[in-house]
Simulated assay, not measured.
Amino acid sequence: MPPPDTPGTSAVPCRVSIVIKALNEEKRIVAAVESALAAVRRVGGEVVLADSCSSDRTVALASAYPIRIVQLARADERCCGVGPQLGYQHSAGEFVYILDGDMEMLPGFLPEALAFMQAHPEVAGVGGQVVEMNTSSLEYVARVERGLGHMQAGQVDRLDMGGLYRRAAVEQAGYFSDRNLHSYEEFDLAMRLHARGWKLWRLALDSVRHHGHDAPPYQLLMRRWRSRYICGLGEVLRAAWGESHLGLVLTKVRELRLYVAVLGWWLVLVAVLGVPMPWTLRMLAFAGIAAAPVVLMAWRKRSARKAVFSVVSWCFNAAGLVRGLLTPQRPARAAIDSIEIRNTL
């Protein structure tokens, strides 16, 4: 395994590395690999599969193709941040694209993105438009309702859902993705890049098809609690503490203020229980304060069901924020222990 500051091992210059991060993606991995190979064929480069110890046929299916395959040495290190960094650690490209295992690269994006970055040397990363295939999923509906500005064309503050990055910029930022993060890994990279003066851009051009995963809303919340996905924001804050990008993290995450407000709401509810007043009045005050957010959201969303889910989701995320803040972290710059399963060189 090459050390993290020595990308790849090839003596031949590599233009683009597409890193596919995957965990149990046997249904989609063939389409992801074939689309990535077709994409690099047009611009020159390599495809690296970074597998997080899949227990299905993901690696076996991918092994039929001329790509590099690396895998985590320890399954207990699985998280959203470790896959991209593992792939980056084994890549050689001057530019690096991160592709999820349930995505497919679309033809035409990489040449346009490379041309844009060549013309704009101040830009560290370029994304495109994400074509969602599962438009009924909770994630998709919530994203549409929020109307996220960073998913629109133009200069953006982050590149969620993948992007093409300039290796020189990533090296300045210290590392590609923080191995400790269970979510918010693209946001963390973006803040470290912005703190060093780099810009990010999203083109008005389709870049990937995303199939995504879905589950019933409350089941999804429980899954994210168990997987620690919901702890990502707290982990980002902990990692940024004392660093140059802390101010950006505190001001750029709109939901952070919401989750802090939820924690304040909990404190008020606890305080009400200790107020010296008749028990009946105390319970009425508690019930009124507890119900207020649900009533407000029901009015805004015109749906009691959506309102209850929103408030429950806030509570899970607020608890995850605290959990992430309190979780010890490994050094983000340390090399990730891995096994090289297949090397095309």
Rank of each mutant, 00 (worst) to 15 (best):
G320M: 09
P331L: 03
A173Q: 08
E185N: 08
H210W: 11
G162I: 01
G274M: 13
Q172G: 02
L159C: 06
V43Q: 04
G81E: 02
H245N: 01
W201D: 01
S313H: 15
L181G: 01
W266E: 10
S91M: 12
N180W: 05
Q172L: 07
Y218Q: 11
Y175W: 15
L159E: 07
A291P: 02
G242D: 10
T9W: 13
D337L: 10
K301I: 00
A32S: 13
A261L: 13
L296Y: 09
I336K: 09
C315S: 15
P216G: 06
G147I: 00
Y165P: 06
S91Y: 14
G128P: 01
A64T: 01
S54N: 05
A318N: 05
G8Q: 01
M191D: 03
A73V: 03
A119T: 09
L193N: 00
G8P: 04
L237Y: 09
R223E: 11
V249E: 04
R179P: 07
N134R: 15
S52D: 15
L110P: 06
L281Y: 15
L99E: 03
D56Q: 07
G234E: 04
V43S: 03
H90V: 10
M297L: 06
G163H: 03
E26R: 14
Y88H: 15
V272F: 07
L267R: 10
E77S: 12
P3K: 12
L258F: 07
A332N: 01
V96G: 06
